[in-house]
Amino acid sequence: MNMHSKTDLRELSYAEAIREAMDIAMARDERVILMGEDIGVYGGAFGVTGDLVEKYGTDRVMDTPISELGGAGVAVGAAMTGLRPIFEFQFSDFATLGMEQIVNQAAKIRYMLGGAVSVPVVMRFPSGSGTGAAAQHSQSLEAWTAHVPGLKVVQPSTPEDAKGLLLAALEDPDPVMIYEHKILYKMKGHVPDGYYTTPIGKAAVVREGKDLTIVATSIMVHKALDAAETMAAEGIDAEVIDLRTIRPMDRDTVLASVRKTGRLICIYEAVKTLGVGAEVSAMVAESDAFDYLDAPIIRLGGAECPIPYNPELEKAVVPQVPDILEAARNLAKGRV
């Protein structure tokens, strides 16, 4: 996964990696500005922007009023006219208030105007459960924006990709939505120094294996890797793919793996139905990789339920390592 010098062992948290990406981008390009609620002296609700306001001032690290629709729209208008805004929704749930500007405006303006303009806006969505914040502060709604042509949608799972995908998003002329998992903000990992980009639209094979393929997004990549280690001890050799981008989806990497292993589990935290898992499954079912399947596809996703408050309930509604193990064992039966 790390394409950079192995001698550089510097570690940063996922939040620090995002902040470093923003810092590098702002230092390189005067047009880059940050906008969002409480991202200035407060440093962001999750501390992602940190002290950037001290370095770049309030003109470039702009606290917005609590106005998600207006704020998102200002970012869209600014992106159309020469700035490169990075707009932070404080919680991804609050983006529901800004959907008009994301879906009707950012995604479509280029097309509606016959390609005469681009909308190079980057939006960040702190997502996911596990913080005890209950139903309106814990959702994983990435499939909403991934359903809209004109947008690109990424879900970094590591500090390295969080930095690389943000820098790639800023190079992209079109609107890029970045879904960051809140539980990952404190996760540490190797992050290369300086400027680099992680390609949008490319999945990563994060563990090679031959018995079954696990396609995972965001925090589920880590759960899948945990489960894969346990499986290995039981003689099941799982390949784990970090999808990284869900629009456009990396079809080649997923299909190649399924052709090799003949078994597929797709894991994501969002509500199971009508989400990433449905798309990955259909992608396989509609291709020649279907002929390589030795067993039905399994999807592991969130329960058909809002995220509850009680910690045991909260854990119960999203896939956990034992769920992955159980699915993998069932799938591997007959082969192992």
Binding site: R31, I33, D59, L69, G70, G71, A72, G73, V74, A75, V76, G77, A78, A79, M80, T81, G82, L83, P85, E100, Q101, N104, Q105, I109, M112, L113, V117
Partner: peptide, 25 residues
């Protein structure tokens, strides 16, 4: 002309964004 708009009120925040660009740049 940054565009006509099929959404009532859709252009209001976009105009503010364009004005932000003008001021910043």
């Amino acid at each position: 002309n940054l565009g006509a708009n099929g959404i009532v009120g859709g252009g209001l925040p976009i105009a503010v964004g364009a004005a932000l660009s003008a001021k910043r740049l």
